[in-house]
Design a protein around this nucleic acid. Structure first.
Lengths: 244, 244
DNA sequence: CGTCCTATTGAAATTCTTCAACACTCGTGG
DNA sequence: CCACGAGTGTTGAAGAATTTCAATAGGACG
């Protein structure tokens, strides 16, 4: 049972009652009172794929919580080459406390639901609630570790291993439609090929070829280019570090 | 003048008085009292190049502050390929609050001085001092941004641009022996070629060739393979994103 | 039915790595 | 004092991996 049952449900702001992210996200660190304060300023948005999330430098100075879907964070060189530097899932917090982000864009990969609120409101809440700051800090540490793991993938793995690493990442991260006990996994890849390429530092063609190879090797099964089945996840995970 | 002059110097613990990192590092967030508490448990170490810093999983469960020198954080694949995922300079904090780091090694690149202390002490101080946690949080956000910028370099830049990006990173980050007004820079590269390669996701040979090219193009001058002079930093910075 | 978008596949071109040889510096010890 | 070896860095040539360019196929939608 949830430990927060001592808070009466009637204390929870109406827009938050059915919220998918209320426990997992940063909201889980807030008291009913704080939640109410925050909820006065929140707006929920639905985003289509490719649509930019209003973050940092963009339009309104607002932070977001992801309620649903996948958001990609990416950076670009001045001549337009793109690198995805992070994938965020519900119930992740989105935004950069304390000053500006340099050149980071955040856009929806799938259909996305976000709950946004002004930076100023969170900043004030953060000063009052140590639990909130702690939770944000922990998320940034987690993201830092993910980024560093991915640096190993980008810098030192070959195309085969990169694609496999990507599939393994999804197999653990994405909604596990089949993740019971075993060694199997099945899920939908939320990204299209060009996004995968931008995440792996490869070209679309190379990604496509590697996926074909894995298919022929019987390591994965594909239906409609998005839905993957992995019969032996352990074998795939081995390939992620010593492939070819 | 320093705002902390209201703290009498006699309040500052003796080992901290002459500390190079006392203002810049996390210690700058502490009151005299907190600093005293911390200093009771600190040990200063001098490390030779290649020597591992006692962090996370390693030997003692201690955090560190870098007082001097450069530390590399790296990850490795199971078959031994290496990727440097971060460079830390004084007065950076070193360690992973809240649980273990997965497979991250930290070792001295140059001669390094660190000030270490038990995790438990910092954890307790962090609960008491919001300013301390704030400062740690900010450092992790900074590191996250650096990691993500570097992901763009690793994933989307060619060898030339990678080496140039590395030099530009040092030109701004490392001790600027010549960074007055202008467009020039001169500094010592603290890493050897194999470290540079591991940082850039390249081989030693490719790094060497690219440096030679830059030398022949008159974009840099080298003396003794470590000391670099950059006559036109702006031109170099342009190359970092659209080289060849 | 045509068009746009996405994905696949092939062949040629390019970049980077691998393998191999060599040069330089520095400390040690005969 | 010089020879030796280890550690570090450079350079060349051949090889491999990935990219680039180009053509094709399928699905969604108006």
């Amino acid at each position: 049972m949830d430990r927060r049952q001592d808070i009466h449900n009637s204390d929870i702001p109406i827009p938050c009652r059915a919220c998918e992210a209320r426990h997992g996200g940063i909201c889980g660190a807030l008291t009913a009172e704080e939640l109410l304060e925050l909820s006065k300023h929140t707006i929920k948005h639905a985003l289509k794929p490719e649509q930019e999330v209003s973050t940092s430098r963009s339009s309104s100075q607002r932070y977001s919580n992801i309620l649903k879907g996948v958001v990609k964070l990416s950076k670009a060189t001045s001549d337009g080459r793109l690198q995805i530097v992070g994938l965020q899932f519900a119930p992740d917090f989105l935004g950069r406390p304390f000053g500006e982000q340099d050149e980071l864009s955040a856009e929806a990969v799938t259909e996305v639901g976000v709950c946004t609120f002004p930076k100023s409101v969170l900043n004030q809440l953060m000063d009052k609630s140590p639990g909130l700051e702690r939770r944000l800090y922990k998320q940034s540490l987690r993201e830092l570790e993910e980024a560093r793991s991915w640096m190993l993938t980008l810098g030192r793995k070959n195309a085969q291993e990169k694609v496999v690493s990507f599939l393994c990442l999804l197999a653990t991260h994405a909604d596990p439609e089949l993740q019971d006990d075993s060694n199997k996994a099945a899920f939908e890849i939320p990204l299209k090929r060009s996004d995968i390429a931008d995440f792996l530092g490869l070209t679309i063609e190379t990604v496509s070829r590697q996926i074909t190879k894995l298919r022929h090797a019987g390591l994965i099964t594909l239906t409609d280019n998005r839905f993957v089945e992995i019969p032996d996840l352990a074998k795939l995970q081995d390939l992620a570090e010593s492939g070819t």
